[in-house]
Design a protein around this nucleic acid. Structure first.
Lengths: 151, 151
DNA sequence: GCGGTTATTTGTAGGCGTACGATTATTAGC
DNA sequence: GCTAATAATCGTACGCCTACAAATAACCGC
């Protein structure tokens, strides 16, 4: 194990610890919204705009059949609506409602709120951190974008 | 939303994305070891040394009764052994076997391996990143003193 | 129009984990 | 000794999610 390996492993472990230990807000989101986490996740994914069932299923990485159950439940709560795609009547378009958007934003507020430690970090160091994280993400995007540009 | 909030939120989102999107190795660990993730987690927690059932349950944040099921399964696989506490015969001490340690180390290798992007980062930047992450962790440790948990 | 394909839904079976209640063995307090 | 508390286990019921198989409706190429 070289020194670089060790530093990379330590950074990875630290990052995992920050995200997974005591900053996992999934339970809090479920409790606040009164629904399973994947339902809240569906709302968050639908917030930017409508999506077909299959697109939603892919985006949530869930089975198509289970996606139907989730959307049916969200529709029963009045958080999403379903309409038929005008050009392809097989496709159903799922659209978030105003109430649903409120719930999605509430979830986003809980999940997206950075841990207190982030706010305690000096502004300049925070900027450095953000730059490094963005660099990591762009490296990831480059290397995985080569092999798959999925339709 | 101030600029600091935004930077902190962006950094938090980026970090969450790095850890949770496409670098979640739990499924890989389950597949490699042929057991549910919580069983692998139990092995990793037992690797440093023996533990009583109740200690293990607390460390895994699982119900005591379910912990019995998990340990029974691990014992049936020969990955852990159970013995009675010499001073309190109610207590059972769970000890990892050599085979179990192999499995735990295999899991640790899979989970602890930093994503490729980390290795593509320049050595000096990696050191900077590690320093910032350690700073965040130490801030966390200072402010919320007694929560030591590892996923 | 016919046959094959696709999108969605329904149904079924099961794994994983949570939450409790009850049981047994053992220890500790009085 | 008797009683209460504790550690572990067993049992049961349930929620959440996966994985398939099958049914239905609508599309597409021919």
């Amino acid at each position: 194990m070289t020194a670089e390996d060790s530093a990379a492993a330590q950074a990875w472990q630290a990052m995992r610890s920050l995200v997974l230990d005591s900053n996992d807000k999934r339970e809090a989101v479920s409790a606040a919204l009164g629904m399973s986490f994947i339902r809240a996740k569906a709302l968050r994914h639908l917030a930017p705009g409508p999506m077909s069932m299959s697109e939603l299923a892919k985006s949530l990485a869930t089975d198509a059949s289970y996606t139907s159950i989730v959307v049916e439940d969200l529709a029963a709560r009045g958080l999403v609506g379903r309409s038929v795609h005008p050009a392809d009547r097989r496709v159903k378009i799922v659209t978030i409602t105003a109430t649903g958007l409120d719930a999605a934003q509430q979830a986003e507020r809980i999940i997206g709120a950075p841990p207190p430690a982030f706010r305690a970090l000096a502004e300049e160091r925070l900027a450095t951190l953000l730059g490094l994280l963005d660099e990591l993400l762009s490296i990831e995007a480059r290397s995985s974008g080569d092999s798959l540009e999925t339709a």
